[in-house]
Amino acid sequence: MAAGGDHGSPDSYRSPLASRYASPEMCFVFSDRYKFRTWRQLWLWLAEAEQTLGLPITDEQIQEMKSNLENIDFKMAAEEEKRLRHDVMAHVHTFGHCCPKAAGIIHLGATSCYVGDNTDLIILRNALDLLLPKLARVISRLADFAKERASLPTLGFTHFQPAQLTTVGKRCCLWIQDLCMDLQNLKRVRDDLRFRGVKGTTGTQASFLQLFEGDDHKVEQLDKMVTEKAGFKRAFIITGQTYTRKVDIEVLSVLASLGASVHKICTDIRLLANLKEMEEPFEKQQIGSSAMPYKRNPMRSERCCSLARHLMTLVMDPLQTASVQWFERTLDDSANRRICLAEAFLTADTILNTLQNISEGLVVYPKVIERRIRQELPFMATENIIMAMVKAGGSRQDCHEKIRVLSQQAASVVKQEGGDNDLIERIQVDAYFSPIHSQLDHLLDPSSFTGRASQQVQRFLEEEVYPLLKPYESVMKVKAELCL
């Protein structure tokens, strides 16, 4: 049975990233139509530049190519590739079939990587351009969430054990800070992308030097003109047959890092959902379990974690691919890159769409948070109580021993009897502590235990987050809708 299948058929496997999760716009960027249309555009740009620099290419040939950029006979191309065992030459023939007058000058002087690699770089750039505003929107939604809850005390956790208090907004800023680093890295790697350009079979530009009869300047002009037509500021000066596969490492490393950030955020949300302090959106008709109707599973956060793990592992592909590119190139890269580049971007696209949807509907339960604080705060307040007693004339050592005994009794009630923490009640009825009984409410005010959390939130948002989001103001209103 021949390899390949009808990918629109229910009898043929289709990647869930495309069929179930990723956005239509990201799927289109990695589609065959987008790819092969870009090949034709690159052939047109090459012909236009070659004509401008004096090669015998007519206006009629150029116009014929322009008129057929979208006229792609995919069936013919597939048949040609089956016959020739070469995808680029299959599309040269297919393009030439609908451009008979231009057929002889299509791909003039070029090698397969002229269309293959340059198209990949265009796709990487455009895919990054799709991700950047999506990530900015996630940051914006979380920034709104953090600002609104900047002063809401909550129990902090280290080692997932109760620690000092923080605020809900401050905790959210930990998430935002990681995503801001990801946004900066995505922008950097996007701006650092260079075009492969017009380089020939081993990167020496020998074929173009021959076409222009040894004119170095025209060869350099050709490279520059096509690079500018493709919208790049610069091209690699040095290439082998391909652009260095280190570029793929750079791009997928940034995406993998984004995956790590999203995994951490969504894990926190899942843990908070278990504590009943916070939940992701839950639709009115949504079913959490087929057997347990009360369940409210954090399905979206779980999906993000599941896909983020996949995204983090994909960076190993370009690392290994770059390491086995012998001399000017081997074909070890080809099949692998067809999979890992598309999957990385479709996965990143999915987790950003999902995280935006989550961040637009996060639900906080202040009463649950308050109750958990009441359970733990008495123990945390013991040092403040000791200091207040010393100020009232008591002995630190005597007070410490009193607190120690009462704390152990209260802990026994919590752990052995399943009761509430009654340390404060014990202190309130103990005559030894009568000098500070009137101060206990103040000493137990949760806001006095959150330090500068709310001020940190305000400063972080104003100095770091809002300036970073400013270039994306025009796209901030787009909502994230999930079908599944």
Rank of each mutant, 00 (worst) to 15 (best):
V189H: 09
S323F: 00
S19H: 07
E228T: 06
L46F: 15
Y472F: 13
A260G: 10
A49E: 06
K276W: 05
D223M: 05
C98N: 08
M476N: 15
S261A: 14
F36M: 14
R452V: 13
S438A: 15
A22K: 12
I385N: 09
Y13T: 10
A273T: 06
T158V: 01
S261H: 05
P467I: 08
S289H: 00
C483K: 07
K66D: 02
R426N: 05
Q356D: 15
D87N: 14
M380S: 02
C305N: 05
R171Q: 01
A308T: 07
K477V: 15
Y294L: 03
Y472V: 14
D11T: 04
P293K: 03
K276C: 03
G4W: 15
C305F: 01
E481F: 05
E463Q: 15
D59H: 05
L255S: 06
S407L: 02
S474D: 15
D32T: 10
P10F: 07
Q439H: 04
M26F: 10
D398G: 09
G109E: 02
N336E: 02
A146T: 07
L142K: 09
L211C: 04
T154Y: 05
V226L: 12
Y365S: 13
V429T: 11
A143C: 02
A480W: 09
H107W: 00
L444W: 13
H310C: 09
C173G: 14
F345M: 10
A260F: 08
L423I: 11
M181V: 12
G393S: 05
F95G: 01
H86D: 01
C98P: 10
R459P: 07
K170V: 02
V324N: 08
A335K: 00
A348F: 03
G4N: 13
G197D: 04
I72H: 13
H91F: 06
A322F: 15
C27G: 11
M476K: 14
L275T: 09
I287F: 02
M278P: 00
A163N: 00
R371A: 11
S323L: 01
E464I: 15
T354C: 07
V368W: 02
R371Q: 02
Y114N: 02
C180V: 15
E401W: 13
S448Y: 12
A381W: 03
L258F: 08
L271E: 02
V219Y: 06
I424K: 13
E283C: 13
E360M: 11
F195S: 08
C340N: 15
D441R: 13
P10H: 12
A2F: 14
G288R: 03
E417G: 12
Q458H: 13
D191F: 03
T450N: 02
V414Y: 04
S434E: 13
H93A: 06
M292L: 04
I351G: 03
S12G: 14
A480T: 15
F36P: 02
I176D: 04
L440P: 14
R149L: 06
M312L: 07
L165Q: 00
A90W: 08
V198F: 06
D178N: 14
Y13S: 12
L311D: 00
W45T: 09
D422T: 05
Y365M: 12
D144G: 12
P298T: 08
T38E: 12
F95N: 05
S31N: 15
S253F: 12
H437L: 08
G418S: 02
A256K: 00
M387W: 07
S395V: 04
T204M: 04
I106M: 03
Q356M: 02
H263K: 06
K479R: 14
